[in-house]
């Protein structure tokens, strides 16, 4: 998952602030705009390289070769360099778990707090554990109030078996923006159509989710009213990074 340290040497911010995000071997590395490649054997041909205009700033840099070196050293020494989106103070993943996360599943709920890398906030929204009125209360308590707060305070989202209409439309838009534009991660647990003991039953209304903007972020297309083969066991596909 992590980017090899020597690869960091190839990146240097040019002009505006940028975020470098390492990605898995099988995942596409997405350099933010404004990143140019240095020290690359064929930087001109590289996909990520951009031609640099001859500006006075660049000329000044050329006269003082220690400046880029100092910048690189500063970046390398920064504790969060190369890290994913985490809390800048604690370096933890601030996980917002929304859905069926109650004390009815103590085993599951107690797993996350035991891990120092995860800072868990739960929002109970599942219909079988919280009424719409209770859900609204939980949302008021735990959900960040503003878009800015949400985008800055949430590093990963987990949506777990609940319907979209308990949320406001802007919440779903925040989820979408957090993942797409701010690099937050999102796990969808039991969010597809499924049957319950062979009966056509679903409590998370995937059809309603499919109409939201968040469906764009789904890694799969959901096929409604069709079941899988029902195999209880899974097999690892090739090229699995974790």
């Amino acid at each position: 998952m992590g980017m090899p340290p020597f690869l960091f040497l190839a990146f240097i911010p040019s002009g505006r602030a940028s975020v470098l995000r390492p990605a898995g071997a099988s995942h596409q590395v997405l350099p933010p705009s404004g990143i140019r490649l240095l020290f690359s054997r064929n930087a001109e041909k590289n996909f990520f390289s951009q031609p640099l205009p001859a500006t006075p700033v660049q000329n000044r840099t050329d006269r003082r070769p220690w400046i880029p070196l100092a910048v690189i050293v500063c970046i390398l020494l920064h504790p969060n360099f190369g890290a994913a989106k985490t809390d800048p103070e604690s370096n933890r993943i601030r996980l917002l778990l929304i859905g069926e996360c109650t004390l009815y599943q103590p085993y599951f709920v107690t797993l996350f707090p035991a891990d120092p890398k995860i800072d868990l906030v739960t929002v109970i929204t599942a219909g079988d554990h919280a009424s719409p009125k209770e859900t609204a209360r939980y949302l008021r308590i735990s959900m960040p109030r503003t878009r800015e707060r949400f985008l800055s305070d949430v590093d990963a989202l987990e949506l777990f078996d609940f319907v979209p209409w308990v949320l406001e439309d802007y919440h779903i838009q925040w989820f979408h923006d957090a993942v797409k534009d701010y690099g937050a991660g999102m796990a969808l647990v039991e969010m597809g159509w499924y049957s319950f003991y062979g009966l056509p039953y679903t409590s998370n209304d995937p059809e309603a989710w499919m109409k939201t903007v968040l469906y764009e972020a789904y890694p799969v297309d959901l096929v409604l009213y069709q079941q899988n083969s029902g195999s209880a066991y899974l097999e690892i596909a090739q090229g699995t990074p974790w």
Partner: peptide, 10 residues
Amino acid sequence: TFGKGVTLTL
């Protein structure tokens, strides 16, 4: 990979 983030379904 969706934009800058990763989504996963379980």
